[in-house]
Design a protein around this nucleic acid. Structure first.
Lengths: 195, 195
DNA sequence: CGAAAATTTGACATGACTCAACTGGAGTGG
DNA sequence: CCACTCCAGTTGAGTCATGTCAAATTTTCG
């Protein structure tokens, strides 16, 4: 159960002693969610940061016109939650729900704070994690600014072939910021071109 | 000269001793750039992370069609550079240049690494910095996905009134992902409505 | 002052959206 | 096992926001 998380930490060059692993384990809890279940709903405060060890979630926002917009898909080995709400204690504007049965290891903000105090090198882990995240936000932003819908779809296929298999097309459309109809047309056109 | 940086660190609840401040100062250098000067050019490796103490920069990317797309404006008290290149040592795909005469305090990746080793609590500073950055990328992404050009312009005005004053409109258009012509029309329309 | 850059305006093109209808498969209950 | 419903996906027709191209006008600054 702990392998994925501990591996993930080690891969970032943060080496924990058995004691430190013990502390970490005491500050996380294991929780299961069903497909379609919410991990976080708009208006609630995000009380936990969740490391996914099985399953797949999505973070989305509902705009004034009632449209859903998917910000991210988070499969195994990713963290999910709403950082802004988690840190500030204010209600979230995002929803997080499960596209498959999902299991997470989660920690509350108080426990995470304790973790940083007793195992300061975890600051490094999260620093590196966030760095990676910023880098990918930059890429996505650049692609949103400069590319057409079909180019962004191609990019998505290249980058997340696994997720493509696991979620229905209308959710991919929402992630790309287009309508399901447009995605359908894009797909039929790129097939014509023999790919 | 050091005030802005030291204040910025303190504001994130990281308290440095005089010794630690000394270490920090020994690992940063002061550098001035002229308006229009590049801090980083596409194809170069980003060797430094720069904390701006005076002036204003922009980070942009040039796409295949030769179009510029501005990813961010960075005024005083912001960091600029290309994290991906800075960390990986690979050539950057971004350009960073100065929209005004600019002064920075900068550190190389080797020196930053030294800083983390001798003053581990700086991990916390950067962790918090990156958190904030991720939160704002999320907001921008959500707004890119769900809002029209004119709504995004209104949002920009609210959020960055100071930057609005300091940069020409065509650069704001590039940041918003629209053409200068479109921005001009948006502006004239919102004036008609008496604002 | 004069050249270069920024902004505005007009005419037209187009990518993506909306609304609506249709298809096809997955599940459900009689 | 069939009829029925539900949902995802597709397709068509018309609309709209934004882009493109071109030219005129205004501003900036050496």
């Amino acid at each position: 159960m702990w392998d994925l998380l501990l591996e993930n930490i080690k891969r970032r060059d943060v080496h924990l002693s058995p004691d430190e692993i013990g502390v970490l384990q005491s500050l996380f809890t294991h929780k299961k969610f069903r497909k379609h279940q919410y991990i976080l709903q708009e208006g609630e405060v995000s009380t936990h940061d969740n490391f996914i060890i099985k399953g797949l979630c999505r973070t989305y926002r509902v705009d004034e016109k009632g449209q859903e917009h998917i910000l991210r898909f988070t499969p195994e080995e990713w963290w999910t939650g709403d950082l802004a709400s988690f840190l500030s204690g204010k209600p979230s504007i995002y929803n997080v729900d499960c596209l498959e049965d999902t299991e997470v290891l989660r920690t509350s903000s108080a426990d995470l704070e304790k973790l940083f105090e007793s195992v300061p090198k975890m600051n490094k882990y999260f620093r590196l994690l966030y760095q990676k995240s910023i880098i990918s936000y930059n890429l996505r932003l650049a692609s949103n600014l400069s590319k057409s819908a079909s180019e962004r779809y191609e990019e998505f296929i290249q980058r997340y072939p696994d997720i493509l298999q696991r979620v229905p097309n209308h959710q991919i459309a929402s992630y790309l910021g287009i309508t399901p109809q447009s995605l359908s047309r894009i797909r039929s056109q790129s097939q014509e071109k023999g790919r």
